[in-house]
Structure formats: C-alpha cells, structure tokens
Amino acid sequence: MQTEQPSTKQRQGVSPWMMGGAFLLLAGFLVFIWLGLQRAQAGPAVVGQPAPDFELTTFDGQTLRSEELRGKVIVLNFWASWCDPCAEEAAFLEQAWQRYVRREDVIFVGVAYVDSETEAKRYLAQHQVSYPNGPDLRTVISQAYRIRGVPETYVIDKNGRLTYIKIGPFVSVQEIVQVVDAALQ
C-alpha cells in the first residue's frame, strides 16, 4: 500500500550533520540557561571588585562620568521620590555631605531610580539636597549595579573599587561618615 522511497532506504542512521547540529544547538541552549542562571543568582555588585562604570546627566544638565571621578571617594545613592525610606535617610545624607563638601576627594551622587522628573525635583527641593542628582535614564545604572530596590547606597574608593554596600536606608549621619572615612583610608 505504501511505497518506500529508494533514496531514503540507502541511508543508514542519522546524518552526522544533523546529529552534530542538534547537539550543538542543545549545547548552546544549555550554555544560555547556565549564564541566565548565573545572572539570576549573582547578587548585587561585590565589595572589593571594581565598581561598574556609570554616566549620569544631572537634573541641572551637568554630566558626571565615573572615570572622571577617579581619585575621589564616590557615595552613589539610589533613591526615588515614591519611596518612603528614602525620604527618611535624605536628611542624613545631606548632613553627611555638608561635612565633606569642601573636600576635593569626596563626592556624593544621587541617582533617581524610575522617577518622574517633576516628582524627583520636588523631592530634592523638599529635602534640600545639594549634591549632584540625576535620573537613571533607561535604568542603565541600576541594572549595572543590580540593585534590588531603593534606597541602596554604594561607596566606591579612590581606585574605583567598591568598598561598601548599604541595602536599605542609613539610620544616622555617623553611619555614613564612618563608611566614607573608612573608604578614604
């Protein structure tokens, strides 16, 4: 009732091309999910490692690049106007900044995480924040630092290494001063 194709009858087994291709595809897929898993399981940036580079355009239109800030201790704070704990630590951050404002080797940088410009500026005015702040455009910086939420603060030493990570809000000025002084040494 059915006719066998003579051409297929001659072939024995599976062609090496097909087998190789199939296994190669599978291997590629496995590598892909392995990398995906690594990424999912990796925590945020690691203390002691070089901190990810960033470029931030502040609300005043000034551009800050992490390479140009080498030689300074950077306190990188992620916040949002819709985040209540951020508002709690805002005063501490500003007070701490006032202690270093005259020093050339410390800079505070605020990054507004998924915030609207109006709300963010209002927040800055309300808390009288005087150090540079800017929006995290396309959430590039927060993705590079793999932040888990806001507020989070990353302290980077003069050589561009991450020396301290704070998840959640600072609870006092002393706490901030301590980590900045530690980074300065």
């Binding site: 496995l30 999910i33 898993l37 999912a40 399981q41 927060s142 932040i147 888990r148 939420g149």
Partner: peptide, 21 residues
C-alpha cells in the same frame, strides 16, 4: 522556581538552580 524570572523585586533567591540545570 530557580529565580531566573526575577526582577529588583524578587526576594526569592533559591539554591535550586544548579541542581535543576
């Protein structure tokens, strides 16, 4: 279950991933 579908809001870090892999 392994936390691959995650976001900044995913708390559930799980150690099941490698075994699953």
């Amino acid at each position: 279950r392994s936390g691959v579908f995650s976001s900044v809001h995913a708390f559930a870090q799980s150690d099941l991933g490698p075994a699953f892999f």
